[in-house]
Amino acid sequence: MTPLDYEYLRKFLKERSGLLLSNDKQYLIESRLLPVARKAGLAAISDLVAKLKAPGAERLAVEVTEAMTTNESFFFRDKVPFDHFRDTMLPKAMALRAKERRLRIWCAAASTGQEPYSLAILLKEAADKLVGWRVEIIGTDLSNEVLEKARAGVYSQFEVQRGLPIQMLVKYFDQSGDIWQIKPEIRAMVQYRPLNLLTDFSSLGTFDIVFCRNVLIYFDQDTKIDVLKRIAKLTVPEGFLVLGAAETVVGLTDAFVPVPDKRGLYQPNTSGKPGLGSIGMPRLAAAAGARA
């Protein structure tokens, strides 16, 4: 791969998926894209680049973009956000929607489904409180390949061992040998749709709770800000946004403010005052207090 090939792919991926690659990630490109090249009957990355530049390469372009995504996920990842979901977000959202009895939840980078299914399991565990409610979980992702796996709900023994309490495995999965499939009634609680966060997603409607975890980390600053602002527009005023352990809105945008004492949890900034985004740390206490 020539330096020019690398530059081309960097720009290509940034435009396609927002993926930000520093100038030393050649090995990552090689390891992810050589299999794609070989599958297309091409010997080297340079051939792949040439093909991408030629007209009519859309299918290859999609494959390249998907191959460069990192899809790692596991059930109840980081645990705490799911405790917050059960103990804080769900009760508050239910109080707010007591009249309509309707909740909408969005997993904006659903990957292979572990995150939306973890939420579905928690909802199932709270089923007695949700009688007569309509709860929608929408899982979206850029990659069609991961969505296919998510829809099937089929996981290896290794995948179900990480993060999933054994009682829940026994209760909510069907086993066939080394393969575990999430039960149809849980699968039916989640709808999957392909969606690139770089594109307009306003047609999804509004949400009470948005999980957008471990995807903003791949984007540059401006893309993060843009996506967060557009998510804020779809989040109801008293709704919640959950980010990944290495992500924050602080220093990026005023659209959300952190929920005090709940790490990783944010709410739309309805105070009319500037939040932390544009200013930074010193105003943290004041802005957080305003939302409490």
Binding site: Q157, Q161, I166, L169, V170
Partner: peptide
Amino acid sequence: NDVAHIARALHAGANEYIM
């Protein structure tokens, strides 16, 4: 690693199960 064994273990008072 089968559900039947796991269920028996839980019933007998196991707290977790590694396959």
